[in-house]
Design a protein around this nucleic acid. Structure first.
Length: 428
RNA sequence: GCCGGGGUGGGGUAGGUGGUUAUCCUACGGGACUGUGGAUCCCGCGACUCGGGUUCGAAUCUCGGCCCCGGCCCCA
């Protein structure tokens, strides 16, 4: 094979595309019932859009190039920045809150792996100008409802708040906060411990920090955290906000969350509530979604406005469904096959196919000049539910024959009744 | 970028200590079968990832590239 697709990219064939379209359509449907409207931004942007917010890790993975005019451009590695750019360009004076969603591919130059590709799809949303914790709660509830709607069951939504840990770090007046946050995000407790040992500050801060990042559980863990944070006003305030968020979430009908104060997230622009969704069993790439509240718009020079968003790693959602062995309700490719019994019946077959298609019925007929016997076999392979047999003998009496491929029963039908009959059978 | 495992017709595979025409299943095209399918039989089509090395001879041994799979890093 001399022609190969680029490393880390995929071709999707018929069945897989059907599954992806089903999931995409279902998720869009959920987003739209929450009042989100779709937007679409360019596949490439000015490189500076992605360098401005200094996600250093992402910089190494960016596909960038110069166009013929010498402009530095980049294939988008993520979609939050383009959406923030769009907001600043066009939407600042639109009534708040603004609810937008998107579905599109992103590109990162990394080592392909299970659930990781160089071109991958994200389906996500941004809610700009809502007030915490109501907006955050609704966003997280929507994420949960989305997954329920596509039939995914074994996911976990972990919710944390960066304000709590930052509150401690600030009160401890620690330097190298970024490094510490990175270690927390990584979940590398040993490395974090040795890092903290090198830092000069009161031991009590270190203890609290190590204590906090281990906190994981349902509502009941809030009580102990509250005690731990008694003497730390900033962190306590964040904790109260987190509790209010849980109230909101429960009233929006989702209570199966996990409070996890060890979530930090890689991107620097997150500020308050953060959440991640995991599906265990996906291996190293178990995270199917991540999001939270961020201040990217301010970073880009817009007026400060509260924004919350998240994105599903669409490919990982598909992988999770596959692993869960879900059978998705997929549409048939072909409902009806119109089979000319002999070559002279070709035009009559085309006429019938045309009428069925204009009624919106997926119809196939013979374009390969197959013999009649092969046509039935072919119709069977296509999964057609009905075959219309168009033959000279029937036609002399103004009939055709409709064969039900499941039951093998067939009936003669007057030519002018065929379309109506099939429409009513299929729509039933 | 680093570490490990792989790459044989469209899909799935056998062969692997070097030696005739590279095995089988499936799919595909045709026929047995000129108005009845998913059965059977026959015929056909079609592959050793690419390049170098060792050798009389390489799918097989060896080196390198490319790609795939898994892990690290990072992330979705």
């Amino acid at each position: 094979m001399e022609l190969q697709k680029p490393r880390g990219t995929r071709d999707f064939l018929f069945e897989e595309m059907k599954e992806r379209k089903y999931v995409e359509g279902t998720l869009r449907g959920v987003f739209e019932t929450y009042g989100y409207q779709e937007i679409k931004t360019p596949l490439f942007e000015d490189l500076s859009l992605f360098t401005l917010k200094s996600g250093e890790g992402i910089m190494e993975q960016i596909y960038h190039f110069k166009d013929k005019g010498g402009r530095d451009l980049a294939l988008r590695p993520e979609l939050t920045a383009p959406v923030a750019r769009l907001y600043i360009n066009q939407l600042q004076k639109v009534p708040k809150p603004i609810k937008m969603y998107y579905f599109g591919s992103c590109f990162r130059y990394e080592r392909p792996q299970a659930g990781r590709f160089r071109q991958f799809w994200q389906l996500g949303c941004e809610l700009i100008g809502g007030k915490s914790p109501d907006a955050e709660g609704e966003v997280i509830a929507m994420a949960a409802h989305s997954l329920e709607k596509i039939g995914l069951t074994d996911f976990e939504i972990h919710i944390g708040d960066l304000g709590i840990i930052r509150g401690i770090l600030n009160q401890a007046q620690l330097e190298d906060q970024d490094q510490i946050m990175a270690l927390i995000d990584k979940g590398d407790v040993e490395e974090l411990k040795s890092c903290l040992e090198r830092v000069e500050t009161d031991q009590k801060y270190k203890d609290i920090l190590l204590n906090l990042i281990g906190v994981q559980g349902h509502r009941e863990v809030m009580e102990e955290v509250r005690e731990i944070l008694e003497d730390y006003p900033d962190a306590s305030k964040s904790l109260q906000e987190l509790e209010r968020l849980l109230d909101v979430l429960e009233s929006f009908g989702f209570s199966n969350y996990v409070v996890n104060l060890g979530i930090a997230r890689g991107l620097d622009y997150y500020s308050g509530t953060v959440f991640e969704i995991y599906v265990h069993g996906l291996g190293a790439q178990k995270q199917i979604s991540g999001g939270g509240t961020y201040n990217l718009i301010e970073v880009f020079g817009g007026e400060k406005v509260e924004s919350t968003g998240f994105a599903f790693g669409f490919d990982r959602v598909m992988e999770a469904l596959k692993q869960q062995k879900s059978t998705l309700p997929l549409a048939k490719t072909v409902e009806v096959f119109v089979a000319p019994v002999s070559p002279e019946m070709k035009f009559k077959s085309f006429e019938i196919a045309d009428k069925l298609r204009k009624e919106g019925i997926a119809t196939e007929t013979d374009l390969a000049g197959r013999k009649f016997k092969k046509l039935l076999s072919h119709a069977n392979n296509l999964g057609a539910r009905y075959v219309v047999l168009v033959g000279a003998r029937d036609l002399e009496q103004g009939h055709v024959t409709i064969k039900d491929m499941d039951s093998s029963l067939q009936e003669q039908v007057a030519l002018e009744e065929v379309v109506n009959l099939l429409v009513s059978k299929i729509r039933r």
